[in-house]
């Protein structure tokens, strides 16, 4: 199976001189197509920073991130935007739907940003798959938190991205709804052979997954526990 993501010796340092904070310290790992990966770690460990780097929402201070074999650190702002649109799907903790749009319009948005105005059937199919076929014309601020997170999953998948990145997708949900969302993501990953990288501190909600990466003090470790070996390439 080919690597969809490769991270080599990536570091992220915030601040300067005496105020330097090393959020990520020489992180290297790769992820294969179709893997369902959890990134775990305590609060402030650097897991969200790592996700922002993979999502090209922030730039690493050092190192290289390749997605589908393309070195993203050499891309300019416009190309990064196009790259995010085509290759990455995002699911956020607070779903972050655009409240001025309907459920269907939110799902269609990544397609329209990419210049494709013909994806309505795909969007309908995805909304059906996440169980929201009867909510499609509702304003995004008129649905529940769990429903909004399902819409966010559909929006994250609509462009058939190489990787779906989820930042604490269950962090704002009750335990029953969280379990439903986790199951939904797992089933979509299996059905579509979709790579998921999920940052969470609710490790137990996710049960068995393909892979777990633990971040501690800015370093990445393979497996659930910080006692596991640091990943080296």
């Amino acid at each position: 199976m080919s690597s969809v993501l490769e991270i080599n010796n990536m570091s992220k340092i915030y601040g300067e001189a005496d105020n330097r904070v090393k959020a990520l310290d020489d992180v290297s790992f790769s992820i294969k197509q179709g893997e369902f990966v959890l990134i775990v770690g305590s609060s402030g460990s650097g897991k969200s920073t790592l996700l922002n780097m993979i999502g090209l929402l922030d730039h690493p201070t050092k190192g290289k991130i390749s997605i589908d074999g393309i070195d993203t650190t050499t891309l300019n702002d416009d190309k990064i935007s196009s790259f995010r649109n085509k290759k990455l799907g995002f699911i956020f903790q607070f779903s972050n739907l655009l409240t001025d749009l309907s459920v269907l319009e939110n799902v269609l948005l990544p397609l329209q940003i990419g210049g494709n105005n013909t994806g309505e059937k795909d969007a309908m199919d995805l909304l059906k798959a996440v169980g929201l076929e009867d909510q499609i014309y509702k304003r995004a601020n008129k649905i529940s938190g769990g429903q909004a997170q399902r819409v966010a999953i559909a929006r994250g998948l609509i462009n058939k991205p190489s990787i779906v990145l989820a930042d604490e997708p269950t962090g704002n949900l009750d335990s029953v709804t969280s379990a439903t969302i986790v199951q939904l993501m797992k089933s979509m990953a299996k059905k579509l052979n979709q790579t998921f990288i999920i940052v969470t501190h609710d490790r137990e909600h996710f049960g068995n997954v393909d892979r777990v990466i633990t971040i501690k003090d800015g370093k990445a470790f393979e497996g659930d526990m910080p006692s596991e070996m640091e990943i080296t390439v």
């Binding site: 196009s82 995010r84 001025d100 990544p110 940003i113």
Partner: peptide, 16 residues
Amino acid sequence: TRQIGVMRSIGAKRKD
């Protein structure tokens, strides 16, 4: 602001 951030994260360019 937050919605602008969401749009940018899902691929909207500055010019959009």
